[in-house]
Amino acid sequence: MTRQEIEQEVKSIFLREFEIENPQMDKDLRETYGFDSIDAIELLLEIERFLGSELTQEEKKQAMDIRTVNQICDYIEKMAKVRGLAKEA
């Protein structure tokens, strides 16, 4: 998967699951969109579905510092790389 595909999927998750249309990439999600701890847990499940594999407890802990959509995309890219799924655009 390319960075562009990841961004597209994240935006689609945000619209489908969180009713947030075209979120700004570098805005703080909590402050701007009221994104909370419950949303974060739902997001991790969606990321697992997208990657087609489970995240380990260690990997999930790494997601705790995420604050923006760009950071979500970075995180997915990193997880995809570990799983041999990442592709250059």
């Binding site: 419950i38 847990i41 739902e42 499940l45 697992e48 579905r49």
Partner: peptide, 10 residues
């Protein structure tokens, strides 16, 4: 089992 949502308890 992942279909059991994180918010189901709430």
């Amino acid at each position: 089992y992942q279909a059991i949502g994180a918010v189901d308890y709430l």
